[in-house]
Every structure is written in C-alpha cells, then in structure tokens.
Amino acid sequence: MPELRDLYQEVILEHSKAPRNYKALESANYKAEGYNPLCGDRFTVYLEMDADKIREIGFQGAGCAISKASASMMTQSVKGKTKEEAEKIFHRFHDLVTGHGQGEDAELGKLAVFSGVSEFPMRVKCATLAWHTLEAALEGKQEKVSTE
C-alpha cells in the first residue's frame, strides 16, 4: 500500500508552503502558462534566456502542494542549465514520477523526493504541470499548455 508520507515528504511540504523563485520576472524573454483543468492548477513560468542558457527563472500561480513544490524545486534545478540540459532533467523526472526510472538517479539530486508520486498515478499531472510549462516556454510557444 502506498504511504502518504512517501508522497507528502517534508521537503515537498516545505517547498509548497514557501516556494522558491516565486515571482514574475521583469527580465523574462520567454514565458508560458500551464493549466490542469482537472483540478484548476494554473502556473506561469518566466525565463530569462541568455542564448541557450537559463540565466533566471521564476514562476507564479496556484495549485496543490505537489504541483507547487514541483514547480519550486524545478526552478532550482534548472537555473543555470542549458535548454538541452533542462529538457534532459525533465525526461528523467518524468520517468521518476511515472515509475519508469531505472532506480536511483543521482543526477536528479533533490528532485528524487518526488519518487513517491509514482504510487499515485492520479497525481502525476500535478507533479509535471510546471515542467510541461517550462518546456513550452523553452520552445517559445505562446499558447497555453494543458495537461488534459
């Protein structure tokens, strides 16, 4: 039986209550909006790109603890990374939360706390909403991203 504490780890709860980089970036040259119509979660991700590199990242919006913590920790993990590196992290993260990962993934670092999500398939969309939004912002897409 999946345990609640596997999902709601202390780090996740802490990030959901005090999200990092929770701001609209004045300097953003890319942004995208993500929406999960199932639960109403809605985030905007702001990027300040320096050529191919994420120099600055911020997000704003409203959502459940999982989606908010995921967005917060995402901003920390991709800041300073190139577009390609960020996309690679997303793919690894996606494998982790959907249970397709190959066990321990050292490169994910702190993001490993989201491994419990794979036991709660209904919550995968919560954990990946900000990431899908990031991907859209990196692609320079203007339309709204939906996880449905």
Partner: peptide
C-alpha cells in the same frame, strides 16, 4: 485553509 482540495482528496482516499 491553505490545503488544496486535490491534496485533501488524496489523503482522504488513503
């Protein structure tokens, strides 16, 4: 309070 309904739903489901 500040707890999103979706989180409440998961915890109740457990």
């Amino acid at each position: 309070d500040e707890v999103h309904p979706h989180d409440i739903g998961t915890i109740l489901d457990q």
